[in-house]
Design a protein around this nucleic acid. Structure first.
Lengths: 153, 153
DNA sequence: TATTGTTATACTCTATAACTATA
DNA sequence: TATAGTTATAGAGTATAACAATA
């Protein structure tokens, strides 16, 4: 009967540190005038461009109505481009503009700094060991790589 | 230049697993008709009873107006009792009732099941190693033990 | 006049559902 | 009639600020 199991268990620490990590990342990308959700969309567009809005919305788990306003904002800022679908003219294919590609590179730099700061208490071997354990937990808990609901806003 | 650093880094995994852990705990305590915030308050009252509402609200980081409605709900359910402050009759001292104490024990059982399920992919030594690393990260990032903003609702 | 607790109001965020245009 | 995208509306959750009682 360990008293600490209530408050200092791994589950609680993971939730606490996870919330902290998400909040810290939010502040960092805010310096680029982006929300975490917008940064995530830029990443998807960089990795897998040209799909329809609904395809991206499904991946992110956001309803279409919300996705539209996200794209609106990024399009107004000249980061994302809507191109009419070729055979099916109801849909739009989304692409990063040159400015969007450049901003995405800066998001990458922000992400690396974030990672490094969060793991400052661990040396290289420990970071690898942590990564291995977290990956196993994520796999066992059936979490999809690349998407987490903390990416909101 | 590791490609994976963007998506599968420790920071991202921690945020993803943390959000998952918080959501899973929310579902579990919902079986006791509690939100995570209410469960956290029961725990505070069990550990440190008799303080004023403002004292607890400050600890939880919630504004007083929100705290009042939380206490209202728990008081209506007979889990928490408000006693007029002794010298200063503006304040109320909060205490768990007998029913509140009993329900809090069930929260503890739920928490242990939650911990065990989340760590199912790790053996005992690994759980200890994980706990040690997470504790060091939390300390280095200056996180207060016992409070995380994911405890909302 | 300051402080504890309370109530009222306004604001943000999100999802549901109605709408339009193409098919 | 069905589907991609859009717009309008309503709901939940939250915080800010006004209020009442006691000090």
């Amino acid at each position: 009967m360990e008293h600490r199991s209530q408050m200092g268990g791994n589950a609680f620490l993971l939730a606490q540190i996870g919330a902290h990590a998400a909040a810290a990342f939010r502040e960092r990308v805010a310096t680029l005038d982006l929300t975490p959700a917008q940064a995530g969309l830029l990443r998807m567009l960089a990795a897998d461009p040209g799909l329809s809005q609904q395809a991206y919305a499904r991946r992110l788990g956001t309803p279409p109505s919300r996705f539209v306003t996200m794209v609106d904002t990024l399009e107004e800022r000249g980061l994302v481009e809507r191109r009419r679908g070729e055979p099916d003219r109801r849909s739009y294919a989304l692409h990063l503009t040159e400015a969007g590609t450049q901003l995405f590179r800066r998001v990458g730099a922000v992400g690396r700094a974030h990672e490094d700061d969060l793991c400052a208490a661990l040396d290289d071997d420990e970071r690898k060991a942590l990564h291995e354990m977290l990956s196993r937990i994520a796999a066992q808990q059936m979490l999809t790589p690349g998407v987490h609901p903390g990416y909101r806003g």
